[in-house]
Design a binder for these strands. Structure first.
Length: 426
RNA sequence: GGAGGGAUGGCCGAGUGGACGAAGGCGGCGGUCUUGAAAACCGCUGUGGGGCAACCCACCGGGGGUUCGAAUCCCUCUCCCUCCGCCA
């Protein structure tokens, strides 16, 4: 949610920012409603002041005649007040309906561009791994090793679901544990959150009301399955006022993520790259407005550390204005090279959302004792998305015989498995 | 799922429809006293909105209603607690 006061004072800047995203928001309509709202508010508040004052006096009146006369006058005044109040409510509803659909403004440092083709390559780290044989894609490797089962996933649930088996399931769990432990060393507090949340929480993160069709929802209750840990972590401090000295606060959480992705049916159908359910370890930071830019760079570094320790060849992209997601004002993506399916896989997306989500969540902090509360800034970033990390591990560490070497950093969690060999009896 | 009880300011805890934005206590901040500290005493101590100065409006879990006037009465929803049932 954008700051109404800012829209009122700098409408041209707001329009310019939104047009960089390729969006023409109804700012003028918003301003007209806002002016009307304030006009009516001033009017009705004056009437209420009069009513309050007279009602107080009525309580002390002795003469029945004067008393009755005033009561009648106030009854009529009350009707006028009710009428104007109803108008104000309608206007506020209309105002809100418009405001909640307007995306965040891009940070001034974000490059121009209409879509992903204009994203800027920040750096590439490492070289594509060289093989003296033809590297296989994971959708061949995994089933051959008996650690990845598409047929049974489809049988249980439907298309785009799969089962990880044996060392495959264990490898994913090892990645989760290792990444969480690394994030703890990087200064994050590990969190375990609910995986289904109320609509208000989804709204706070920005996925509602606009992206309803991408979410799974309980059929009779207002409960939604999380599309990312970003959602419960944004909800964590809803309606709170935190002590400024406790910022920044860094949280890391493992959650499954559920996405209907109706829009993307037909894309990336092969393999485990894009499913309706996937696991992710997420980093999240609450910060002051002053620190958030620098903290985004830090979180990027923290995610890159994972890629480096896994020995990946990866690249960092900065998203252009037209490719930013709804709540973000600046975003970096990290992509790793998968030699089997021969593509760059987005394993992480790190965003500074500024005060956009905090405003929707009413999450504030007090800079110092006695000072007025301000909205915090929120930042989120994957560290990392599991299926794509699994793809990169399998495809980069494969050997000519189809076995896969387990990266050394994961050994403590693999129970002695250093090479994944074909499983028996699966 | 069934029965009952509750929800008040940072916390605890009062509150007969008009004197309550709300007693009292705790905590916090400032001051007096003191060489310093403690104690004692005095004062201040919520959020949002409109004007953006004085001031005004709203908020006592959420929403709706009764009334000239609601923390206080009515309806409804949510959440919490206790007991029973069921379960991991």
């Amino acid at each position: 949610m954008l700051d109404m006061e800012w829209i009122r004072n700098k409408p041209d800047e707001v329009k310019a920012g939104l047009s960089r995203r390729g969006i023409e928001a109804p700012i003028d309509r918003l301003l007209a409603l806002d002016a009307e709202r304030r006009k009516l508010l001033t009017e009705v508040e004056n009437l209420k002041a009069e009513r309050n004052q007279t009602s107080k006096a009525i309580g002390k009146m002795k003469q029945a005649e004067e008393r009755e006369q005033k009561i009648e006058a106030m009854r009529q005044l009350g009707e006028r007040i009710d009428g104007i109040d109803a108008q104000v409510r309608d206007i506020e509803q209309a105002l809100n309906d418009l405001a909640v659909e307007i995306p965040n403004l891009p940070d001034p440092s974000v490059p121009d561009g209409p879509d992903e083709s204009a994203n800027v390559l920040v750096r590439t780290v490492g070289e594509p791994k060289q093989f003296d044989f033809e590297p296989q894609p994971h959708w061949d490797l995994g089933p051959a090793l008996g650690i990845l089962d598409f047929e049974r996933g489809v049988r249980i649930t439907g298309s785009r679901f799969y089962v990880l088996k044996g060392a495959g399931a264990r490898l994913q769990r090892a990645l989760i544990s290792w990444m969480l432990d690394l994030h703890i060393r990087q200064g994050y507090m590990e969190m375990y959150t609910p995986f289904i949340v109320r609509g208000q929480t989804v709204f706070a993160a920005g996925q509602l009301p606009k992206f309803r069709e991408n979410l799974y929802k309980d059929h009779e209750e207002d409960l939604w399955m999380v599309p990312t840990a970003e959602v419960p972590l944004t909800g964590l401090h809803m309606d709170e006022i935190l002590d400024g000295e406790t910022l920044p606060r860094r949280y890391a959480a493992y959650t499954p993520c559920f996405r209907r992705e109706k829009m993307s049916a037909g894309r990336d159908v092969r393999g485990i790259k894009r499913g309706h359910q996937f696991d992710k370890v997420e980093m999240y930071t609450y910060s002051t407005p002053e620190d958030s830019s620098q903290l985004l760079e830090q979180m990027l570094e923290h995610a890159e550390e994972i890629c480096r320790q896994l020995g990946f060849n990866y690249r960092v992209l900065e998203l252009c204005a037209g490719d930013l997601s709804f709540s973000a004002r600046k975003t970096y993506d990290i992509e790793v090279w998968a030699p089997g399916c021969e593509e760059w896989l987005e394993v992480s997306s790190l965003s500074n959302c500024g005060d956009f989500q905090a405003r929707r969540a009413n999450a504030r902090y007090r800079p110092e004792k006695g000072a007025r509360p301000r909205h915090m800034h929120t930042l989120n970033g994957s560290g990392l998305a599991l299926p794509r990390t699994m793809i990169a591990v399998l495809e980069n560490y494969q050997q000519p015989d189809g076995s896969v070497i387990v990266p050394e950093v994961l050994h403590p969690w693999m129970g002695g498995i250093e090479v994944i060999q074909p499983e028996e009896q699966v």
